[in-house]
Simulated assay, not measured.
Amino acid sequence: MVDFLLYGAYGYTGRLITRLCAERGLTPLLSGRNAEKLEAMHREFGFPYRAVDLSDAPALHDMLREQKVVLHAAGPFIETAEAMLEACLATGTHYLDITGEIPVFAMGAKRSEAAVKTGVMLMSGVGFDVVPTDCMAAYLKEKMPEATELVLAFAWKGGMLSHGTAKTMLGGLGTGGAIREHGKIKPVKAAYDTRTFPFTAEVPLRAVTIPWGDVFTAYFTTGIPNIKTYFAVPPAQIKQMERSNWLGPLLRLGPVKNYLRRKIEARPAGPDDAQREKAETYIYGEVKDVSGRTVAARLRTPEGYTLTAITALMIVQRVLAGEVEAGYRTPAGLYGADLIMEVEGVTREDL
């Protein structure tokens, strides 16, 4: 018996999710457009599979009608999410994905009313993007209900980017960043702001603003109107981001992106097991009210891709258990600030 549909099963994160399914006794229907890769996964894990291209709406609808929920793991989601969202609305299938892309969150929110009418839940960002940061935002909102400003920042120790994450970042190359100001998302230049954050008690790290998904989702979760998100990177990378403001038109050219895409494909698909086991991630959150009073906290979590597989399946299991609410929803908005604390090894500290 199949428990749920996993689309994009043979991607780097899809494979991690598939492995964790085997450990947790869940049976996914593996899917994607490449039948050969799916057959190889079937031989490896024993799970059933079905190859369907997202452009084939009748076949996609036929597959989804048999499923209660789909976990969509085929990025870049800006290119794949719309077809899956529409198919889920047409077939009454709950939709989950692991994106961190602001336009994809907006796709789901735009369809919230339609989802309510059809009894479907649309929840993007059920992985590292954005579960730990969304939970941090909700936790701080509980600490300071009157907060008007929210800062979220993250850093990681060890690990590397998967092909999918790198290609998603490539898609946004040369387009600048985003913050939320007075309730509205505002485009800003790349490396718009830098700050030093106490991610751990040992060494503070310099971080730079990026258009992380919480610029969109944290507003839905908390109602806080001013939001910035930061990522800790080396000073040289911050300089590169600053230069991209001048090189934007060049970086957006097709030949440049094709060259960089080939460079990505030549790298390993993502961190191996040993790298993931040694790595970990840090989240810092801070809220402020109109008087300037500040409340802050930090999280320490497993490595990002590992955490994505864990939290994605945690939410799949909640959906299978009937813990759903029709319409567009955020992870912490529906499941609460302590959702992340259910993950083994996560620690949270008030500052």
Rank of each mutant, 00 (worst) to 15 (best):
Q317L: 03
T330R: 00
G304S: 13
D289T: 13
G327F: 13
A326V: 12
A309W: 03
E323I: 10
P331E: 05
G292H: 10
S291D: 09
M341S: 12
A309C: 09
R329I: 04
T330W: 00
I310Q: 12
L299W: 02
T308V: 12
T294R: 15
G336H: 07
E342M: 09
L339K: 06
A297W: 05
V319D: 10
M314P: 02
M314S: 04
R293Q: 11
E323G: 08
D289S: 12
A326F: 08
A312W: 10
A297T: 09
A326T: 11
Y305L: 06
G333F: 06
G336S: 10
G336M: 04
E303D: 06
R298Y: 11
T311E: 10
T308N: 08
Q317A: 10
R298D: 00
Y335S: 05
V290S: 13
R329H: 02
T306K: 13
V290P: 01
I315E: 00
A309N: 10
V343E: 05
R329P: 06
M314Q: 13
A337C: 08
A337K: 15
Q317K: 15
D338T: 14
K288R: 15
G292Y: 07
G336F: 09
L334W: 08
E342F: 04
A326P: 07
G327Y: 14
P331K: 02
V295R: 13
T330M: 01
M341I: 02
Y328W: 12
L320G: 07
V324L: 04
R318D: 04
I340D: 00
Y328L: 09
V287K: 00
M341C: 05
G327L: 10
G336C: 05
T330G: 01
R329V: 10
A309E: 02
A321F: 07
Y305F: 15
I310L: 14
G327M: 10
E325V: 03
Y335N: 06
A321N: 14
L334R: 08
A337P: 00
V295D: 03
V316Y: 03
D289F: 12
V324I: 15
A296E: 15
L334C: 03
R293A: 14
M314V: 03
T306R: 13
E303Q: 12
G336D: 07
E325C: 06
A326R: 03
L299T: 00
T308R: 05
A321L: 11
K288Y: 00
R300K: 15
R293P: 01
T330P: 01
P331M: 05
A326N: 08
V295M: 04
R293K: 14
G336L: 06
T294Q: 14
G322V: 09
M314C: 02
E342P: 02
D289V: 11
L307F: 12
T301C: 15
A297M: 10
G304C: 13
E323C: 03
R298F: 01
G322T: 09
G292R: 04
E325G: 02
V343G: 04
L299E: 00
Y328T: 09
L334D: 02
I340Y: 02
A337Q: 06
S291W: 04
S291P: 01
R300G: 11
A337G: 01
A326W: 10
S291L: 05
G336A: 10
L307Q: 02
Q317F: 07
M314T: 14
E344V: 02
